[in-house]
């Protein structure tokens, strides 16, 4: 997959949750543009075009980052802090999707500038519905600040 064509960066260390998410996104035809990072360090490397991702460029960020909180190496809140704290990446929409019910986490997340915060439903169907709505909302209704040369810039033919 072309590194500049990634729509969603999914950051989650739970194999089950990753598969569920990809499955739900596939149903909306979004699955082929998802990149999965298994820990906070890989997520940061991806977003900051470092480590194994030096071929990426800040001009082609993902349209959305789906971020879990509990991650190995670097946790979700740290990732959020760095992404929202750097002018090169702070405009990337970040959605925290976590099983944490901590009110404190919500408060800190919004303080750091998370775009939205969702709790992963326990129910399989609810989870799927949530991912579908997320995809639709953030990739279709929302206008991301990216400049990929895609269909947005080409007028519809008549």
């Amino acid at each position: 997959m072309n590194p500049s064509e990634v729509d969603i960066l999914l950051v989650d260390d739970s194999q089950d949750d990753v598969e569920l998410t990809l499955h739900a996104l596939r149903a909306e035809n979004l699955a082929n543009r998802v990149f999965v990072a298994r820990d906070g360090e890989e997520a940061l490397d991806f977003l900051f075009c470092a480590g194994p991702h030096t071929e990426r460029s800040f001009d082609h960020p993902p349209k959305m980052v789906l971020l879990d909180l509990k991650l190995p190496k670097v946790d979700g809140m740290q990732v959020l802090k760095q992404v929202k704290g750097d002018p090169r990446t702070r405009t990337i929409p970040v959605v925290l999707m976590t099983s944490s019910k901590e009110e404190r986490d919500r408060a800190i997340g919004y303080d750091l500038g998370v775009n939205s915060y969702l709790q992963k439903p326990v129910d399989f169907d609810e989870f799927r519905k949530m991912v579908k709505l997320l995809g639709l909302y953030w990739l279709v209704i929302n206008q991301p600040p990216v400049t990929n040369g895609n269909s947005h810039s080409v007028a519809q033919a008549k």
């Binding site: 775009n115 953030w138 929302n142 600040p145």
Partner: peptide, 29 residues
């Protein structure tokens, strides 16, 4: 500052969209 803000505008100008995100809008429709 924690209150979510959805920008809802007729403008489709790149600079409006980017500025909105830069200044902390949660999303832009």
């Amino acid at each position: 500052r924690r209150i979510p803000v959805v920008i809802f505008s007729t403008s489709q100008l790149r600079r409006d969209i980017v500025r909105s995100y830069e200044m902390g809008a949660n999303c832009y429709v």
